[in-house]
């Protein structure tokens, strides 16, 4: 742990402080629930960042894994009376299996074809959940899903439970990024030929990335089900998948921190829109879809690398400039003294 803290030093420290302090800075129950939703989204987007940003594989079906996770845990706990913890473990494994099978089936697809296949998968899952009424409750959904006991079940304890999971997922992904496996992902993204000639089994590693992202989404889905207490198939469609994708792209696909920041940003915008819609009646309804679509287009046109990598490169440039200026100054001073 100590080494990890050293390695990620500042960024992770700042993250921890902000994350822990947030519920006290914003003591309102409503903001805590927003914080919880952001955390749930972040778990999905960090996983999506691994498969899309690192390994370069587009997935338009992430909400489907989210939904499978949610329904797995909900059905196991409500219908079969299993404890929520068992449900949560299953909500990681079952979507992982789905991702594995899907990944095997569509291995070798690239670009648009992969996007289409994952899109179709997303539709199939949402329709499947809706139609499998005896188990999932169909369109009317499920109710009274038990909460996960974690120092009680207040909004505050749920907040810490979910952000503890976010922190684990974040650490796991940051570790992965700078390891043999993470580099293999990134190598595949840039050049499959070179990756192959370095001994990387491209298909296997793509599949791995896919499964891990499916598992992350599933865990988040399970937590979502237990937090909400009710479920219906509506949030697990294309709309949500696109929202996840937007979060990752806005923050910067190649950066894990980017996924987190993008998630925050999109959720802030979303909350802002809801707040504004009280005064501007025209903003009610599905306006957020239009706004997010617009943001996605603008980002891809003007800042395709995303927010975090852009800021990082600006920061490095300014630092280099400052160092240069300092050098220049020292040289001039030296000249003046001699």
């Amino acid at each position: 742990m100590k080494q990890v803290i050293q390695k990620w030093g500042k960024s992770f420290g700042i993250y921890l402080v902000l994350m822990i302090l947030f519920p006290f800075v914003m003591p309102d129950e409503y903001y805590r629930s927003v914080g919880i939703i952001i955390g749930l989204h972040a778990i999905v987007t960090i996983g999506l960042c691994l498969v899309m940003g690192l390994a370069g594989q587009i997935s338009l079906g992430q909400a489907a894994f989210w939904g499978i996770g949610a329904y797995t845990s909900a059905v196991l706990t409500t219908k079969y009376g299993l404890p929520p913890l068992v449900g949560l473990v299953a909500s990681a494994i079952v979507p992982g299996l789905f991702a594995f099978i899907l990944g095997r089936a569509i291995a070798g697809l690239q670009g648009y074809y992969l996007a289409m296949a994952t899109l179709a998968f997303g539709y199939i899952v949402q329709i499947g959940i809706t139609e499998w009424e005896p188990v999932t409750g169909g369109a009317s959904g499920m109710i009274s899903i038990p909460r996960v006991p974690f120092f009680g079940d207040s909004e505050l304890s749920m907040y810490y439970l979910i952000w503890a999971v976010v922190s684990c997922v974040l650490l796991f992904s940051l570790n992965l990024l700078n390891s043999r496996v993470g580099r293999a992902f990134r190598a595949i993204h840039k050049s499959e030929i070179a990756a192959t000639s370095m001994g990387i089994d491209v298909r296997r590693f793509k599949l791995n990335a896919f499964v891990v992202s499916g598992m992350f989404a599933g865990i988040s889905g399970g937590l979502y089900a237990h937090y909400m207490g009710i479920l219906d198939p509506q949030p697990f469609g294309l709309h949500e998948s696109i929202k996840f994708l937007t979060m990752v792209v806005v923050g910067g696909m190649t950066s894990i921190w980017g996924a987190l920041i993008g998630t925050l940003l999109i959720n802030f915008i979303s909350e802002g829109l809801i707040a504004m819609s009280e005064f501007v009646p025209g903003l009610q309804g599905d306006i957020d879809t239009i706004v997010f679509g617009g943001i996605l287009v603008l980002i891809i046109m003007f800042m395709p690398e995303g927010l975090v990598p852009r800021i990082r490169s600006l920061y490095e440039k300014s630092r280099a400039k400052k160092a240069k200026a300092r050098e220049e100054l020292q040289r001039m001073e030296r000249k003046a003294t001699t």
Partner: peptide, 21 residues
């Protein structure tokens, strides 16, 4: 990092042991 990718076949850590460091 580019050169480290070249060591891929000389190393064996799985995804999970990498992620858990």
């Amino acid at each position: 990092e580019n050169v480290m990718v070249g060591m891929h076949t000389k190393t064996k850590s799985s995804l999970f042991s990498c992620g858990l460091n």
